[in-house]
Write a protein that binds this DNA or RNA. Structure first.
Lengths: 293, 293
DNA sequence: AGGAATACCTGACTATAGTCAGTCATCATG
DNA sequence: CATGATGACTGACTATAGTCAGGTATTCCT
């Protein structure tokens, strides 16, 4: 624990959070209680499912319901049935609600501008790029990695995104049906499936197979675009290797497609060496292996 | 109003403020209501005057008093008479309070470390430097400049700091007594005194004399170390020149000591040219003037 | 088809935050 | 040494946030 760095983070938390945060709240709440304003804001012009609002704002179901009734009473929101599932209801802004939302949106712009306005052009550029950097790296530090059943909704979401991306990037497209790995090969003790999440959203995954008679094999390493370049892939890979080593594997291998250049860069920098073809995966062009200590 | 920059600031406010702020609060409040924790924290091991706490936390006097009674009731705080003014009371932590404060301090460290811990060394360095940059520039944008009576406590505080600094930097020391400018020369319409403040703290000042028979003269331009390098001096100077021009001055001049190199750099970059000695100020080595449009 | 789970709702609460008017001691000022 | 200002305190409030135990309709699972 580095005192100097910790102090910078503490100072930052203190000043930025309190000054900017308090300002932000006071701008959002106009006459209305803050919780109502936040909810109105979160519903947005496109509307939102009540369930989504609950998780996004982290509110008690009863409390949220009551807040929605109040906003309905003021004629700002209408809660109606959703599209598919008949239990899920959707909150939409009325015309008056949309007008109010627009007002909040404008105030939010004003607040942001009031931060930039006193600064010179050069300072504005430095401030915004530093803000973007803080945001990205804070995002990186909020990524948590943990084991997960491959049938879990978070895992499913990752695998869907993974397949969609491969389909878009491979010259020959990609058909997930023939990927040749069963879910139960990725459940301990046969293997392990990891997801990387930010709060509740899954932003990456990776798996390792641990067959009894062959080397361990990394499968389905994927990182969402929102956190790419932040070391999440490396953390997933490290964790999978650690697990394989703990399970007694002496080495680990993997295959990849020639269009996945960042992935190959990652493997090389993580100590993988290219090896001859060891399987018949039609989508693979390169095979890598790494000894485990 | 630049949309792209405004959007960056809005995103930053939204994500960083809310995520970090919420985390920070939840770490600070342990069993105890947040307001109590904040107060306990703010009192600190050194103790604090009740009046200072009120302005720092921006609390209602009655509410603060009640909070102090609660903390006293829990044996964490003792409120006693202060040093000088018998009306002002001082809150001090008891031994138990100090222990509790230490706990909060430790939790604050833990929280900061939990942000850094998942990152690589390079990322940590980048994050903390970006945080420091955001903090400094945000500070710069929080600086407000306005006119002020030279007898105002904020002005007095600045002038004291100014004199202290000059005394430290001038080869021959500095005696504020013989500075030769009366307060009433710096009050409209004879002149103007400006202070730069961050919330309630004065961080800079500057004045202009507008004698009937001579050019306008800039006096007492000073910027606190906490905001130096953030363009506050430039903003003060601009504002003073604008005022002088509006009052009909055709040019403005000033003198300075050879040890004040940043100030001279500022004057030159603001369009001032060195001119021959125009007064007998014993502390001055350089004289500058600038025509006003 | 029947039971478990899910999404939302209502009623009845409690806790926390914050406000306001009025009181009392102390201090600065003429 | 009266007068007004200031700092802290108390009592009596209100508003906001949040919790919890049911209850109903819908969907999922087998």
């Amino acid at each position: 624990m580095d005192r100097g760095l910790v102090d910078v983070v503490r100072r930052f938390n203190r000043t930025v959070t309190q000054r900017v945060g308090a300002l932000d709240d006071s701008y959002l709440a106009r006459d209305r209680p803050l919780a109502q304003s936040r909810l109105l804001w979160e519903i947005g012009p496109a509307g939102a499912e009540v369930a989504a609002l609950r998780t996004r704002l982290d509110l008690d179901a009863g409390y949220l319901s009551r807040l929605l009734r109040t906003l309905e009473g003021e004629g700002l929101v209408a809660v109606g049935p959703g599209e598919g599932d008949g239990r899920v209801r959707t909150a939409r802004l009325t015309d008056a609600g949309r007008a109010e939302w627009g007002l909040l949106d404008g105030r939010s712009d004003d607040l942001a501008w009031s931060v930039l306005e006193p600064l010179s052009a050069g300072q504005r550029a430095r401030l915004t790029s530093a803000m973007a950097e803080v945001e990205r790296l804070l995002m990186a530090s909020l990524v948590t990695i943990g084991p997960c059943h491959p049938g879990d909704p978070r895992a499913r979401a990752c695998l869907r995104a993974y397949a969609r991306e491969l389909a878009g990037r491979f010259d020959a497209g990609f058909d997930p049906a023939g990927s040749g790995v069963e879910d139960n090969e990725l459940i301990p003790p046969a293997g392990l499936f990891l997801v990387a999440t930010v709060s509740t959203e899954a932003v990456g995954c990776g798996a390792v197979r641990l067959p009894a008679d062959e080397p361990a094999e990394i499968k389905r390493l994927w990182v969402s675009g929102t956190v790419r370049g932040l070391g999440v892939g490396r953390r997933l890979l490290d964790e999978l290797e650690r697990h394989a080593a703990a399970a007694g594997a002496g080495s680990v291998r993997l295959d990849t497609n020639r269009s996945l250049t960042e992935a190959m860069r990652l493997y090389r920098s993580a100590g993988y060496q290219e090896v001859p073809r060891y399987n018949t995966n039609p989508y693979a062009h390169h095979w890598f292996a790494k000894p485990l200590t």
